[in-house]
Simulated scan of single mutants.
Amino acid sequence: MLQNIGVPGLILILVIALVIFGPSKLPEIGRAFGNTLKEFKKSTRDLVDDEEESPKEQKKLEVVEKAEEKVAK
């Protein structure tokens, strides 16, 4: 959907946003949007990192369980 928006479309959207929100609110809205995207990327990265660590965590748990079994014997 966003791939079909060209430069004229972006200019039109910016002009409409400027008329609706005014020049004083536009930087605040942009800043809030940027912070939202940054937080979303951070959360996504954390989720991906957690999924990548899962097999490693599983192996660690197996090693610990085997060690506990040896100590119990």
Score class of each variant (00 low, 15 high):
residue 11 I to R: 14
residue 6 G to D: 10
residue 69 E to R: 06
residue 52 E to D: 00
residue 2 L to E: 14
residue 28 E to Q: 06
residue 42 K to R: 15
residue 8 P to V: 11
residue 48 V to E: 07
residue 2 L to Y: 13
residue 23 P to R: 13
residue 52 E to F: 02
residue 64 V to H: 06
residue 40 F to Y: 14
residue 41 K to W: 03
residue 45 R to G: 01
residue 60 K to W: 00
residue 54 S to W: 05
residue 36 T to E: 02
residue 4 N to S: 07
residue 39 E to M: 10
residue 12 L to Q: 15
residue 53 E to M: 11
residue 15 V to I: 15
residue 20 I to T: 14
residue 29 I to T: 04
residue 50 D to G: 04
residue 9 G to V: 05
residue 45 R to W: 09
residue 36 T to R: 06
residue 24 S to H: 09
residue 5 I to M: 12
residue 32 A to K: 08
residue 2 L to A: 08
residue 5 I to A: 10
residue 17 A to T: 08
residue 38 K to M: 07
residue 26 L to N: 07
residue 60 K to V: 08
residue 55 P to V: 03
residue 56 K to W: 02
residue 8 P to Q: 07
residue 39 E to Q: 12
residue 70 K to R: 15
residue 45 R to V: 08
residue 31 R to F: 11
residue 5 I to P: 08
residue 71 V to N: 11
residue 22 G to M: 10
residue 22 G to R: 07
residue 58 Q to N: 05
residue 41 K to R: 15
residue 29 I to F: 11
residue 62 E to M: 06
residue 10 L to F: 12
residue 52 E to P: 01
residue 63 V to K: 15
residue 15 V to G: 06
residue 45 R to L: 08
residue 60 K to A: 02
residue 68 E to G: 00
residue 25 K to V: 09
residue 6 G to E: 04
residue 17 A to I: 04
residue 39 E to V: 10
residue 26 L to W: 01
residue 69 E to C: 05
residue 6 G to R: 15
residue 13 I to W: 00
residue 14 L to F: 11
residue 36 T to Y: 12
residue 2 L to G: 14
residue 44 T to K: 06
residue 21 F to V: 15
residue 63 V to C: 08
residue 2 L to T: 15
residue 64 V to W: 01
residue 73 K to S: 05
residue 9 G to Y: 06
residue 60 K to C: 02
residue 3 Q to P: 13
residue 56 K to T: 09
residue 10 L to E: 09
residue 16 I to Y: 09
residue 70 K to V: 11
residue 22 G to A: 06
residue 48 V to L: 05
residue 14 L to M: 10
residue 35 N to V: 01
residue 29 I to N: 04
residue 27 P to S: 00
residue 27 P to A: 07
residue 23 P to Q: 11
residue 5 I to C: 02
residue 13 I to C: 01
residue 31 R to K: 12
residue 29 I to S: 04
residue 18 L to C: 07
residue 24 S to P: 08
residue 50 D to L: 01
residue 63 V to P: 10
residue 51 E to V: 01
